[in-house]
Design a binder for these strands. Sequence first.
DNA 1: TACTAATGCATACGTGCATATGTATCGACT
DNA 2: AGTCGATACATATGCACGTATGCATTAGTA
Lengths: 159, 159
Amino acid sequence: MSEHRDVLSTPGHLVSLVARGFARLSEARLKPFGFGVGHLPVLVALRDGKAGTQRDLARFARVEQPPMAQMLARMERDGLVRRTPDPADGRSHRVALTEMALSCLPEATAVLMQGNRDALAGFTEAEAEQFVDLLARLLANLDRLAAKGPGRRWSSAVP
Amino acid sequence: MSEHRDVLSTPGHLVSLVARGFARLSEARLKPFGFGVGHLPVLVALRDGKAGTQRDLARFARVEQPPMAQMLARMERDGLVRRTPDPADGRSHRVALTEMALSCLPEATAVLMQGNRDALAGFTEAEAEQFVDLLARLLANLDRLAAKGPGRRWSSAVP
DNA sequence: TACTAATGCATACGTGCATATGTATCGACT
DNA sequence: AGTCGATACATATGCACGTATGCATTAGTA
């Protein structure tokens, strides 16, 4: 029976190991640009005008607000981002990319893409596509499961 | 061209999201037992006698030594584990599960397994198997890539 | 208009993971 | 036996993530 597999051979644990491996690889390759893996959702959202405030960025990146605040603080400290008070809302800050970050982004994303190709070495095109498909379905399941217990966090719209 | 995908649709980023979702689900379900997701490799290794020292446990769980030291300290604090000086080696400590941890383990792993089934809802048996296979191949690639840069960390034997 | 609820942030704290570095012990070799 | 490199562990520091709270502002409503 395939039930007898160990806990450490489950998809959950394997995904965790793969995620850490991916993160270490990407972190290493992104370091020359001054970026970290976690920065990417923020950078992309700001570049594409998908989000301008801290809360929007947190939602977009699917993290909670305090981690996003901390990350933005570090990114501001490192010159990747600028925060200015929102004239229309006294509570809010408008977040914008610096020219430095904007100019580094294309090459950084290219490096990321190459990292993905390297990691998927030996995968056929069909396998790679199915992998992404399975991941997306898994993510949808996990979102659905998370929505059962606590109050839903994200707008339940998965890109 | 499928090259035009966004960085946030890459396998790397998706895997990261899935891993976080899995971790949150498992963390929530494991909390009643006093376990955390990161504890599982340690608990299983100790139960199966696969490792008895801190260094072995770190290698088994594929984490560095300082994180493992911290985790063992918390696990000892929480009564999951006991550390006794190794009579044969003055530098080393023998790590052992407490009866409490040992008695909770079966049910905890069962809950974990169920969580995996829940997360894989809608997957055919073939899809689930292929997913695990793709993950294993990806992990092997990532290990190979990691071995290029820094000195290899784990014994390059992936269970 | 005044009061209350919702919203946006900040802070505090715990956890998991990483690197860098120090300390003590062990083993091997002169 | 004494010395030196390897080994096992501890400590310090930083990042990413989470929850729990508190505060200020905005907005909805009596």
